[in-house]
C-alpha cells in the first residue's frame, strides 16, 4: 500500500461561520512530486493543506492519501504518512524541551524509546539543531524554531511533507538552509508559499488558487509567466 500520493476529488469545505473556503478542488499529487501552492491570502491554501492531514474533513468530496480515504477512522494511518509543518512554529513547540517536542510524534506512534532517540537525533542533525535538544523553545531564534518544528515532523519519517509558508519570517541564511534541507527530502512535498523564488527553486509544479478554486495547475515557470 503506497501512501506517497494525495488525491482530492471535488472537495468542498465551509467553516462553521459559513465561509466557503474550498469550492470543488480536484487535484492529484503523485509520488516524489514537489508542488507549490500559490495564491493570495485567504484563497484557501492553508485550508487545503489542513485536509491532507485530516485536521479538517471535507464538507463534500473525498481526500485520499494513497489508497486510504481520509476519514475519522483512518486518521492514525493518514497522520503517520503525512507530516505537516504549520505556519507558526510556536504552535508546534509545546513541550518543555526541543527533544521532547521532536520526540512527541514518534512517541505517539508507540515506537521503542531507543528508536525514538535515533529518530530525534537524526532529525535534529538534519535541521542543524544538534546540541539544542535540551533547550526550551523560547531559548531558540526564529529560524531555529522553524527548524525545530520541521524536525518534529521529520522524526515521524513521513511519506509526504506538507508545509504552510515555511519561509515566512526567516532571514536569508535560515531561508537558504531551509530550501537546502527540503531538497534533501526525496518524498512528496506540498508547500503553500508566497515566496516565489523558493517555489521556483524547489517545486517543478505549481498550483495557483483563487477564492477557494484552482485557477492554474502547471509548471512553476509557466505559472510565474502568467503572474
Amino acid at each position: 500500500m503506497s501512501h506517497h500520493f494525495i488525491r482530492f476529488t471535488n472537495v468542498h469545505y465551509s467553516y462553521p461561520d459559513g465561509t466557503e473556503a474550498l469550492k470543488g478542488i480536484s487535484l492529484t499529487v503523485t509520488h516524489g512530486e514537489r508542488v507549490a501552492l500559490l495564491g493570495l491570502n485567504g484563497c484557501g491554501k492553508s485550508t487545503l493543506l489542513l485536509h491532507t492531514n485530516g485536521l479538517l474533513l471535507p464538507s463534500e468530496g473525498e481526500v485520499n492519501v494513497g489508497d486510504v480515504p481520509v476519514t475519522k477512522n483512518t486518521l492514525p494511518v493518514v497522520r503517520r504518512a503525512v507530516g505537516m509543518v504549520f505556519q507558526n512554529p510556536d504552535d508546534m513547540l509545546f513541550m518543555p524541551t526541543v527533544y521532547d517536542d521532536v520526540a512527541f510524534g514518534p512517541r505517539n506512534m508507540k515506537l521503542p524509546e531507543k528508536e525514538v532517540d535515533r529518530r530525534v537525533r537524526t532529525a535534529l542533525s538534519a535541521v542543524g539543531l544538534k546540541g539544542c535538544d535540551d533547550k526550551a523553545a523560547f531559548q531558540l531564534s526564529g529560524g531555529q524554531r522553524r527548524s525545530a518544528a520541521i524536525a518534529s515532523v521529520l522524526s515521524m519519517e513521513p511519506d509526504i511533507l506538507v508545509l504552510d509558508e515555511p519561509s515566512s519570517n526567516l532571514d536569508i541564511k535560515a531561508r537558504r538552509n531551509l530550501i537546502d534541507l527540503l531538497k534533501t527530502f526525496h518524498h512528496t512535498i506540498i508547500v503553500a508559499t508566497h515566496d516565489m523564488e523558493m517555489a521556483q527553486e524547489l517545486c517543478p509544479r505549481s498550483i495557483l488558487m483563487q477564492d477557494g478554486r484552482i485557477i492554474a495547475d502547471a509548471s512553476t515557470s509557466e505559472i510565474m509567466q502568467r503572474i
Binding site: 492531514n53 485536521l55 492514525p76 503517520r80 507558526n88 521532547d100 510524534g105 505517539n108 506512534m109
Partner: peptide, 24 residues
Amino acid sequence: QRAVWIHRAMDARGFDGTMPTGHS
C-alpha cells in the same frame, strides 16, 4: 485561537488524548 492551533499540531502528530512519556 492559539490553543486550537496547538491542539491541531498535536493531532497532526498522532496525539490520542494521552501525553506520551519518554524516559521511564
